[in-house]
Simulated scan of single mutants.
Amino acid sequence: MLNAWLMSAVLWGAMIAWLGVGITPYLVIQAVVGFSLLEVVKHMEHYGMVR
């Protein structure tokens, strides 16, 4: 788990170093979309479309 967090932090740091702090809102939006998709898939796997 810590390895995944560290890899994400390194990726974010590299993107900010390369493209500047203006990329931060896009990184946050991407993180929210990714987390939301993960939660939707998890919900569909556990409960299905009809309960």
Score class of each variant (00 low, 15 high):
34 G>A: 06
44 M>W: 08
22 G>E: 09
40 V>R: 15
27 L>Y: 00
16 I>K: 10
2 L>H: 14
22 G>P: 05
12 W>C: 09
39 E>W: 05
24 T>H: 00
12 W>V: 06
7 M>T: 04
12 W>E: 01
22 G>F: 14
19 L>N: 09
6 L>T: 11
38 L>N: 13
48 G>P: 00
12 W>P: 02
20 G>P: 13
30 Q>A: 08
11 L>P: 00
30 Q>G: 11
9 A>L: 13
24 T>A: 12
1 M>W: 11
6 L>Y: 14
27 L>M: 00
34 G>I: 08
43 H>L: 11
42 K>F: 06
11 L>E: 07
8 S>K: 08
34 G>W: 04
48 G>A: 00
21 V>A: 12
10 V>I: 04
34 G>T: 09
33 V>C: 01
14 A>D: 06
42 K>Q: 03
51 R>Y: 01
23 I>V: 13
2 L>D: 14
11 L>W: 05
25 P>C: 06
37 L>Y: 15
10 V>W: 07
40 V>P: 04
32 V>W: 09
44 M>G: 00
12 W>R: 04
50 V>S: 04
39 E>Q: 10
51 R>W: 00
9 A>E: 09
43 H>T: 11
48 G>L: 00
51 R>L: 00
12 W>F: 06
9 A>W: 10
21 V>H: 12
51 R>I: 02
42 K>I: 10
6 L>S: 12
23 I>M: 11
36 S>M: 12
8 S>R: 05
46 H>V: 07
16 I>C: 14
47 Y>F: 07
10 V>F: 02
12 W>S: 07
14 A>R: 10
14 A>C: 04
36 S>D: 04
46 H>Q: 11
5 W>R: 12
23 I>L: 05
34 G>D: 07
13 G>V: 06
5 W>F: 15
1 M>F: 09
40 V>H: 09
7 M>K: 15
23 I>R: 01
8 S>H: 06
47 Y>C: 01
50 V>F: 02
40 V>S: 08
42 K>G: 04
32 V>T: 13
46 H>R: 11
38 L>P: 06
24 T>F: 09
40 V>A: 10
41 V>H: 13
5 W>C: 05
4 A>W: 05
24 T>N: 10
46 H>Y: 10
30 Q>M: 06
26 Y>W: 15
3 N>H: 12
20 G>D: 10
27 L>T: 01
28 V>I: 01
28 V>K: 02
42 K>M: 10
39 E>Y: 15
